[in-house]
Design a protein around this nucleic acid. Structure first.
Lengths: 231, 231
DNA sequence: GAGAAACGCGAGCGATCACTCGTGTTTGCC
DNA sequence: GGCAAACACGAGTGATCGCTCGCGTTTCTC
């Protein structure tokens, strides 16, 4: 022991080819996970999807779980990078409908681009490590939602805030499933609009209209979604 | 062929002991499915949970899928029997908050008593047959919700009605998960109340208050849940 | 160009799974 | 009591899974 000069336990040198293979394998894994779920997906199937031998797969990943973990971490990183926390201070000053746009739209867009994200984070079939990441992300987002709610309705007790935040999250998750199930185009846009309507109607009674903004709160538009908008 | 006097292809005589074993095996399967999910559950694990040998299990079920199917069918039957469709004509005359109670409460109660129902109907990991049953139930419930919405808001187009019904269903599903995750007691009751609040606020703007009922619609109570009620 | 190391392969290993079978026990019927 | 059928058992079977290993190929470094 103690003879470790470098802080890296695995200073494995990667060639450009290797990095390419890793990306290729993760893409293939995302496709197969998305189609059959984590447990029902065999490592040989991933290798086949990537047009690679099983041995090659195991040169880059120590086991099946590591594939899902790496995939999850890259998605998480990309998500944070693409639109940060979306709960920036200036967004907190926005009226509710605009805040919903700012928070919901990028989240929906991300999940539409990476459907495997939901598949990995959603299943109770995934092994421990992924579930931990999921719980951490869940808690982080929940805390952000709680903070926003506390800002909009400071009179609420902590328990109420937590309950409302959890409900908002559950509604979003359910709506996200609907959105992903809807065919792309007008129908999907309408579903997104409907999800925002749900959240708006749920949260509107909570904001106490502190008279600082005279007439910004639109009086609950009666579902303006009917004709196909913008393409 | 053609020598079949009875209409039953399998006129297997069951003794009382056999029926007991079947119930015992289904109970064990429900527990294990609920804990580990369908795919991750081995038939040997079910047999072990039921304190029975694998051979005995296969005397009553031809394969693993049949266990889940029989379990799902019994749950479906019990659900329909316990509270019918809950969408009876007299319930349609109820104001929205009461209708929500009548429809949501028994649904929640059933899923609390049989958590395996969600586990079976929810997973994308279940094999074809269960998914078909799930889709059928989903469509049936969706049609009922659409009918109710059409009754309360006849001015809506078919597409809007379908979208709203789907959203209501998604909200309920998400809220149901929250309710099951909450500890039994006051917290769970509060979560149920919150779920009803969501649905009420979402659907209230749709009813056109046709002046037949003067002042029945309560003006959106501002979350009356704070102190622990009843117990 | 030569050596080393990363890359790539696919047959195959041990473990586990869904499921079977031969045998012994219990139960219903006469 | 005797017989047939339902019940119960658990070691075992073939298939599949996650994963390994030995060896050949490509790429980097000098």
């Amino acid at each position: 022991m103690s003879g470790d000069v470098s802080e890296e336990p695995k200073p494995r040198r990667r060639q450009a080819r290797g990095e390419r293979r890793i990306a290729q394998l993760l893409q293939a894994a995302a496709r197969v996970f998305c189609a059959y779920g984590y447990t029902a997906t065999s490592t040989n199937a991933i290798a086949r999807e990537a047009s690679v031998s099983p041995g090659t797969l195991y040169q880059y990943f120590p086991n099946k779980e590591a594939i899902a973990i790496e995939l999850g971490e890259r998605l998480l990183h990309e998500m944070r990078e693409a639109h940060g926390q979306a709960f920036t201070p200036e967004n907190l000053a926005l009226p509710l409908p605009e805040l919903l746009d700012v928070v919901v739209d990028p989240m929906i867009a991300f999940n539409c681009e990476h459907p495997v994200f939901l598949a990995l984070m959603h299943g109770s079939e995934v092994p421990g490590r992924i579930a931990e990441e999921h719980d951490a992300l869940h808690a982080s987002l929940l805390a952000s939602v709680q903070e926003v709610i506390g800002h909009y309705a400071p009179a609420l007790s902590a328990a109420e805030r937590a309950r409302i935040a959890g409900m908002v999250f559950a509604i979003f998750k359910g709506g996200l499933g609907l959105v992903l199930a809807a065919p792309e185009g007008a129908e999907r846009d309408a579903t997104i609009a409907e999800l925002k309507t749900v959240l708006l109607r749920y949260l509107s009674p909570l904001v106490e209209t502190p008279a600082t903004t005279p007439a910004t709160t639109t009086p609950v538009t009666t579902t303006p979604v009917t004709t196909t908008p913008t393409r």
